[in-house]
Each structure stands twice: as C-alpha cells, then as structure tokens.
Amino acid sequence: MKRKYYKTGELSKIYKIGRDSLKYYEKLGLLNPTRDKNTYRMYTIKDICNLSLIKELRSLDFSMQRIKEYLKNRNIETTKKMLKEELSLIEQKLEELLTHKDSINQRLKSINNAIDNTNVNRIELIYINKRKAIARKTNGEFTENVDYLIQRLNENLEENFYILGNSNFGGVFDSKSIDRGVYNNYKSILCFIEDDSVRSNFILDEGYYVTYTYRGDYKQSSRVLPMMYKFIKANNYVVLGDPIEIYKIDIYETDTEDEYVTQVQIPVKLLMDC
C-alpha cells in the first residue's frame, strides 16, 4: 500500500534539506503539510513533487517568486515554457563553464611560461605588440598594496576576472616619483584584455621595451629601476613613457616569495629611430 504522508524528518533526510527551509517553503505557500493528532507536519505526495521541482529550479538559480508562479499555475503549457527557460539557463551555464575552462587553460599556460620561458636577472630589449588594458588610477602620493589595488580594479570590469594564475595584471609607476628617488609609487593598476575588446581605457603602444625579470618579493623596484635606466642611458635609448611591472607569479599562486616572478618594462625609442 502506498504511503500518503511523510514526516518532516523523512523529507529533510531524503532531500538533504534543512527543516528551516521546509518551513520557509511552507510559509511561501509552496508546501502545504497537514497536521496529525500530535500536531506534527505531514507532507503529501504533491508536496514531495513540489519539493523536487523547487530543488531542480533553485539549482538553476530561478527566483522563489518565479518558482511560486509556476507551481501555482502548473499545466502542460506552463511546464513547456518552464522547460524552455531551463534549457536557456543551462546553455548559459555551459557557456560560462567553457569560458572558465578556457581561462583555466590560459592561466596554466601563463604559469608554465613564467617558469620555463623567462630569462631571469637579465636586462633585455624586446619588441612588444600593442596591448589593450583596463586601468584604474591610484593616489601617486602614497603606495597602496598592489593586491588591494587589483581588487579595486575589479570594480571597473563588467564581469569578475579570475585572480588565480592570471598574469595579466600590472602596475604603472609614477615617473615623477622615480625622478625624486621614490620607486614604489604607482600611477595606476591595470589588467590586460583581449585585442578585440571594446572595454579598454588604456593602450600600451607597440614598440621596443627594455625589460628585466626577477624572482622573489615583487617590491624590488628600488634596485631594478635604477639599473634599467642606467642601461638605457648607456645605450642612448630614449624613454617614451612610464615603466610598468607585470605580476607573472605572485601571492595568488604561491605563499613562497622565492617563487614570485615579476617583469618590469620601460618603453624606449632606439637611436636609429630618432
């Protein structure tokens, strides 16, 4: 003989859902348990059906209001409409997951490149193509924590970016502070973005850059920048703009400072181009 009623504890155990949630659904009118002679809540097969639907729809982030509308007016037509909405949301989630997968693969590639294909502790002259970025200005009169600035930069983006393994973050030094012998002030923090993106508010022109990559604590600018400017002067290059530093591997990837990888870049014009 089929059972007609189920107790709160049974539903809570079967569906792995708290008693408070069951009471909340009851308050919304989504579940309608009766009471036995001991005033215990007793749920019907219809309540169980509704609870299954609630769990399914909540897993796809349907609002409680939308779920309530559907359960209060459930027929073939509204079910077909709801199923189409579910398919649309699933497609959206699949697209988000594929984007996340691509991002993870790119971040793994970035970490491997930083480890395997980086010349450390050597000044180099390299040609870099134009890069687009989103930048946020900082207060040049004091140094803010770089990681804090990265979080602030997130406010400028339409969607969240992934921090872990993302070597697209950088800081733009304040050249005027450097002239005064202050090497730890930034004009802005930036995040490089795809070439076809229309959200850019900062462009780094293509051309030659004097670069230096080092491991360890990324607060080594007071040592690195004077050395790079000395190299530029010795080779009669012309500085074209503010230095930038790129955080290839930092605190988001490792707690071991010796594993940090930072690259400083200074745009220059060669004597032959003058």
Rank of each mutant, 00 (worst) to 15 (best):
M1Q: 04
K2Q: 10
R3H: 10
K4T: 06
I14H: 04
G18V: 00
S21I: 12
S21P: 04
L22P: 06
K23A: 09
L31P: 08
L31M: 07
N32C: 04
R35Y: 12
R41T: 03
R41I: 09
Y43W: 05
K46Y: 08
I48A: 12
C49G: 02
C49Y: 15
N50Y: 07
S52P: 01
L53D: 08
I54Q: 03
K55E: 13
E56H: 03
E56K: 05
L60K: 01
M64P: 00
Q65Y: 14
N73M: 05
R74A: 08
R74D: 03
E77R: 14
K80W: 10
K81F: 15
I115S: 03
D116M: 06
N117I: 01
N121A: 04
R122F: 07
R122L: 06
I126R: 10
A135I: 02
K137P: 00
L149A: 12
L149Q: 11
L149K: 02
N154C: 09
I163M: 09
I163S: 08
N168A: 15
I178A: 13
V182Q: 12
V182W: 07
V182I: 14
N184F: 04
N185Y: 11
N185P: 01
N185R: 15
I193M: 07
E194A: 09
D196C: 01
V198Q: 08
N201V: 04
E206P: 00
V210Q: 08
V210N: 07
T213F: 07
T213A: 02
R215M: 12
Q220M: 10
M228S: 07
Y229S: 06
N235Q: 03
N236R: 06
Y237F: 15
L240I: 02
Y247F: 06
Y252A: 02
E259T: 00
I266G: 09
P267Y: 11
L270M: 11
